[in-house]
Design a binder for these strands. Structure first.
Lengths: 147, 147
DNA sequence: TAATATAAATACCAAAAGGTCTTTTTATAT
DNA sequence: ATATAAAAAGACCTTTTGGTATTTATATTA
């Protein structure tokens, strides 16, 4: 479905926001461990996201990652478009550059509502809305609950 | 959305079926040209598909690709699963191996109907059902109509 | 049967995705 | 000030995807 990079980005960012809600500012080692992702790769991804301005970071002892509380919530679409490019989210499934009512691919009519549902989902849901679900305790970022 | 390989496979196979409906058996050069795909790469893909038994081919002068009329129609899902693996079609968008009611990812409830719609689409639609649409003339495999 | 047109097989190359490691910078605590 | 604990930067490496080219096998036609 999504690139590994996107999965790690989403899991990592949601984890950070959950910890922020608890008043914490997690570091790379903790994040990678808690989302079960390769540590160095997770570092690379989060640093790229921080550089882009999606979140803030603190160097040095006691440092870590956190979100600016004054900024608007971040749509999933913004993250996914950043890691995979816009076309991958909302392109034609037959690969046509101009697939529309005038020049429809053989799946155009049937795929259109699906594409719109996906677009609605990743636009309406935010890192924060997902983090709240996890914070409430009914959703998970991992394959199994910790013992 | 899909891999390039999947796009070329779907476009190529649908093109072949359309030509078969017209009583023709197109060759590699024609297919690649008509679906606007790299010729050598298209060859590789179609040969792989033929080897797997999705379609038949004839070597030698006047040869080309064609479908066995006695076989059942081929679901899109069969092709996509073959080129990308099953997980890519119906996996968890957060990358969880076991994402279900018991251990839902933060998008589980909302993404479930979307995944089901996609599954329904690629199960119900076949190479043949798409080819019929193109044959009827109201759908296209190319970005622009030929002049 | 010889030339030719085609798919099959195979080897190779390039770009992107996925991942690791080392060094540098910077903030904090002692 | 110094030691330490973190993120930042950047150099590599591996695997997969995407693509090209050459040679071989085979069917058709002249």
């Amino acid at each position: 479905m999504f690139y590994k990079e996107t999965e790690y980005a989403l899991r990592g960012l949601v984890y950070i926001q959950v910890q922020n809600y608890k008043g914490m500012r997690p570091g790379l080692a903790e994040i990678a461990k808690e989302i079960e992702a390769p540590a160095f790769y997770t570092a690379k991804i989060l640093q790229k996201l921080a550089k882009q301005g999606f979140l803030l970071s603190m160097k040095g002892r006691g440092g870590g990652f956190y979100f600016d509380k004054d900024k608007a919530e971040i749509q999933l679409k913004d993250i996914i478009s950043f890691t995979e490019g816009v076309n991958n989210v909302s392109g034609c499934c037959f690969g046509l550059k101009s697939c529309d009512e005038n020049n429809p691919c053989p799946l155009h009519e049937q795929y259109k509502p699906i594409r719109e549902s996906i677009d609605k989902l990743v636009t309406e849901e935010t890192l924060q809305s997902l983090a709240r679900k996890v914070y409430e305790g009914n959703h998970s970022l991992l394959d199994c609950l910790k013992t």
